[in-house]
Structures are given as structure tokens and as C-alpha cells.
Amino acid sequence: MTRRRLPQTPAYWYDGSMPPWPARMLSALYASVTALRRKAYGRGWLRSRPAGAPVIVVGNITAGGTGKTPLVIALVERLRAQGWTPGVASRGHGREDEATPRWVDAGSNAAQAGDEPLLIARGTGAKVRVDRDRVAAARALVAAGCNVIVCDDGLQHYRLARDIEIEVQDARRRYGNGRLLPAGPLREPVERAADCDFRVLNLGTTSEGEVQREAGFGEWPMRLQVGAAQPLLGGRPQPLSAFAGQRVHAVAGIGDPERFFSMLREAGIAVVPHAFPDHHAYQAADFDFGSKLPILMTEKDAVKCAGLVDAMAFMVPVQARLPEAFWIALLDRLPARP
């Protein structure tokens, strides 16, 4: 069996222990640089560039996954239903040759497109552009006929002017120890969240009643609705309940693998967890688990694994569900549709 590298999230970000002094020193330096950069844009020393269409940024102020991708997909679908032609701009973290801008569609290669952009392209059919320069990506989408841009991540990419900011936060981990990188998980101070137009709290696969209890003042609850498990090599989908009482290999190469494992355990599944680094480039050897059990993995992992697994591998899709009032409030912020 191959040895696996686990995601390198420092334990002190979330367990309450004191970060080591080198991390605290670097955090102070990071705070100074971040504050100076924000001040430069706030005072006009640096200028944000318009895309030529309304821009909605979906991001977070913490490092690691918070559930942005399901929200981006839901947002694209809602905008299209309202008569807009949305396009998605993304950096495409983890892809090969990140310096090269690319168009991403359902047939793109995950290594070149990036796992999240490919998942969005397959899930929505919308135009998706990956580029380290998000201004260039947004303008390319406008030139291609899109009249509203959804920026996947990029809350800190101030060079791209935006009309709406949506912060997504994980309900279980929140802001961790409240410290800036690398002493904590924060990319920007907690106060930055107050500047966002919408604050979405990802409550995972909790019930509707739990959603209403846990979302705080000024937060919009988002829950994830789990769909039937889809065989990666084709075949009949299986309800997640079909795996209840069984042992399965659970594979997650996302920002917070435990979120996926907990979801499966809540469905009564005996999980053998296999956590990989975020945006992991899978190889066939990664699935040499030493026992023949069904394999359940996230959609984000599945777009990279179809040629590496056998017929016992399934992806578990999720869909973001938010209150209708959230969509009404968000659409009300946009200008009249062209």
C-alpha cells in the first residue's frame, strides 16, 4: 500500500493551542502587508479594474475549503433562470501551468483546467475561464457573450472591481483561532467579513430545523442536499442509504476532508477515511487500499479519477440549498437585466 500525504493544516489553527513564535512573527508581517494593500486600494493608490459587466465574487477570508463551489453552481443556475448569461472566472488552483489562461468545458482535462473549474463547467454548462489575472478572465467572458460574471474565489483579488461580495464560512470551523496566516487560517482580519454584502454559513447536511437554529444574525444558512451516489464508470445511481451499515473507503482531497467523512457517517456508513491534500493529482496507486470495498468520493475528486478506479467507485454529489429570501435579496442588488 502506498503512503499518503495528508493535508497540512496546522493543528493550532483550530485546537486552541498557542501557535509557535515563528508563525506569530510571520503573521504580524502578513498583517502589515495585507493592511497596506487594502489601504492602497481604499485610497485609490491602486485601482480596481471593471470587467464590463456586473461581477459577483464568491470567496472566504479563511484558507481552505468552506463550500464555495456548490454555491457557485447554484448561483449560476439561478442567474440563468432569471434570464442572465453567466460566466465563471477562476484562477484554477492546482492546475498545470497556472500561468496559461484557458477555457474550460465539460470535456477539458482536469490537470490543465483545475478540478473546481471543471466541476463547475460540467455542473452548469456555463462558460468558464481560468486565469491568474481575474480581470483578464472576466473581460474574456464578457467578450464571449456573458453579461454577468461569477468569480470563484478572489475575495482578496481587489484588482477586479466587483458589484457583490459573498463570504462563505464553514459552520464547524468558523474562523479558527482568529489569527492571520500562518499563525491562523485567516487571509484577512475577521472585520473584513463585515464589508461583504452577504455572509453565507455552510451548515453541511444538517436538517432544516438545525439550519434555523445555528445561523446567526446577519448570516444566510446554506445546507447541502446529498444526491444519489453516481458510479464513476457508468451504471445505475445508488441512494446513499444503500451503503448504510457497510464499510467503505472514503476519499477526499478537499480543504476539509473531515466534512465529507462526517457526512457519510451521519448516513450510517462505516467510513475508512483517506484524506489527501487539496487539489491532489491522483494516481492509480493512491487507490491501493489493501481491501476490496466500495469507494465513495467527492465530486471534486471524481473529475480526476475516472480512469484510475474500478466499478466499485462512486461520487457523492451535493447541491447547495439557501432560503428563497437570499436569492431575492441578491438579485435585487443587480442592475436591470440587459
Results as ranks from 00 to 15, higher is better:
Ser90Val: 01
Pro189Arg: 02
Arg49Trp: 10
Arg37Asn: 07
Ala106Leu: 03
Leu180His: 06
Arg129Asn: 06
Gln112Ser: 12
Asp133Thr: 01
Lys68Leu: 08
Leu296Gly: 03
Pro20Lys: 10
Arg173Leu: 15
Gly87Leu: 10
Ala329Lys: 09
Arg187Met: 10
Pro317Phe: 02
Gly83Ala: 08
Pro221Ile: 10
Leu186Phe: 10
Pro231Tyr: 02
Val58His: 13
Lys300Phe: 02
Pro54Thr: 06
Glu324Ile: 00
Phe243Lys: 03
Leu334Glu: 12
Glu98Thr: 07
Leu293Lys: 01
Ala136Tyr: 08
Ala51Asn: 07
Ala110Lys: 02
Glu324Ser: 09
Leu46Val: 05
Ala110Gly: 02
Ala138Tyr: 06
Val318Met: 09
Leu75Asp: 08
Leu6Ile: 15
Pro277Asp: 04
Ala137Leu: 13
Ala284Gln: 13
Arg265Tyr: 00
Gly83Lys: 08
Gly42Tyr: 01
Ser291Thr: 14
Arg102Met: 09
Val142Arg: 10
Ser108Ile: 07
Ala329His: 11
Pro317Ser: 01
Arg173Met: 09
Glu219Asn: 02
Gly114Tyr: 00
Leu186Thr: 07
Phe260Met: 04
Ile254Glu: 03
Leu155Gly: 00
Lys127Gly: 04
Ala35Leu: 14
Ala89Cys: 06
Ala63Glu: 11
Thr85Tyr: 06
Ile61Tyr: 07
Ile166His: 11
Arg95Lys: 12
